[in-house]
Amino acid sequence: MTYKQIKWMILFIPTITVGIWEYVRHQFLLPYISMDLGNWLTPVLVYLVSVTLLNRLFHMLERIQQELQTERTANAALEAREHLAKELHDGIAQSVFLLSVKVDRLEFTSDQAKYDKDIFQIRKTVHEVNRYVRQAIANLRYAATEETMVLQKETLSEKVKQIAEEVLVPIEVEWSIPDELLTPKEKVELLASIREAVVNIQKHAQATKGWIKGELAVNRVGWNAQIIDNGIGFKGDLNQLGDSYGLLIMQERAKEMNWEFRIFSENGYSVVELRHLEANMDRQPG
């Protein structure tokens, strides 16, 4: 029996039952059943039909709905696998192949300068593979729909606090950027950048304290996110990131998302800043 047939039967069975009962009662049972007794028997009859026949139909309806939900879940899982396979092929597999080619070339390189350059490229490719892996995982967690964010029931502020707790350095979080101001993809990229900056604090900054601050841009539509620490600061030209692969990846990510990316020192503190000042007015919370 189909879903549609069950629904129609649930609608019509009580009506048909009452109609048949009233016809039989008035045509054949009036000499034996009084009007008042017949009026009392009508709801009793409907109740008996409901707890017997209709109850079975409701169970059938629930079973069909569960099967549909299971099928939807299976389809969603299949789509997620296909998406992950595409991510692995387009990003990781190609990068690993490129990495193997560069390693093979090193065996025949006698030029030290070219050797150092190739080593730099290999290291960068490894970090890019790491980025692709993180991106693939993040894409599975944040399917590009707001529905997924709602189902997860975790705000961007909560995610940032989770990142802050991943390292040993105590990091305070001051976050006031509304979730509605960012798209799911922007949230993924922003969280990945914040995590990269926080890991750098743990690995390189020798800091005793850190801060993650996120706020709306002053008098403008957009937002400003800063990762601050009281560590040893950045060495060399801040405009030339050199072999700081994590920062290079952050810079590339910011460029792809059309964000402003800055690294600077201020009053003895090191600051990594991401800004977006051209957000859509319609997405700003009222």
Rank of each mutant, 00 (worst) to 15 (best):
T2M: 07
K4N: 14
Q5Y: 12
K7W: 05
W8V: 09
M9I: 12
I16Y: 03
I16H: 04
V18A: 15
G19K: 03
G19R: 10
E22K: 06
Y23P: 07
R25I: 14
H26E: 15
Q27H: 06
L29D: 03
P31D: 04
Y32S: 06
M35Y: 14
M35C: 09
G38Y: 02
W40Q: 10
W40V: 11
L41V: 12
L45K: 08
Y47T: 15
V49F: 11
S50T: 15
T52W: 07
L53T: 11
L54I: 08
L54H: 05
R56P: 07
R56H: 10
M60K: 11
Q65T: 10
Q65A: 10
Q66P: 11
Q66N: 08
Q66Y: 10
Q66A: 04
Q66V: 12
E67A: 13
T70F: 10
T70Y: 07
E71D: 13
N75G: 10
A76F: 13
A77Q: 14
E79S: 14
E79K: 12
E79T: 13
A80M: 08
R81N: 03
H83F: 13
L84K: 06
K86G: 03
E87R: 11
L88M: 10
L88C: 05
H89G: 01
V96Q: 00
F97A: 12
L99F: 07
S100Q: 06
T109Y: 04
T109V: 12
S110M: 11
D111R: 00
Q112T: 09
Q112P: 14
K114P: 05
D116Q: 12
K117D: 15
D118H: 00
I119R: 02
Q121H: 11
Q121L: 06
K124G: 08
K124N: 12
V126R: 00
E128A: 07
V129C: 05
N130E: 05
Y132C: 02
V133Y: 15
Q135H: 10
I137W: 10
I137N: 03
L140P: 09
V150I: 15
L151P: 08
Q152F: 11
E154L: 07
E154I: 03
E154K: 13
T155R: 14
T155K: 06
S157C: 09
V160Q: 00
Q162F: 13
I163V: 10
I163E: 06
E172D: 14
V173A: 00
W175G: 04
S176K: 03
P178S: 07
P178R: 01
D179T: 00
L181I: 12
L181N: 00
E186Q: 08
K187C: 11
L191R: 00
A192N: 12
E196H: 03
V198M: 05
V198Y: 01
I201T: 02
Q202Y: 06
Q202H: 04
K203N: 08
H204C: 02
A205D: 01
A205L: 01
K209M: 05
R220Q: 11
R220K: 08
G222D: 02
W223T: 02
I227S: 03
I228E: 08
I228Y: 00
G233W: 13
F234D: 05
F234E: 07
D237M: 00
N239Q: 11
G242L: 03
S244K: 13
G246A: 04
I249H: 02
Q251I: 01
Q251N: 02
E252C: 01
K255M: 10
R262P: 03
R262G: 11
F264L: 01
G268Y: 02
Y269D: 09
Y269Q: 09
S270P: 09
V271T: 04
A279H: 07
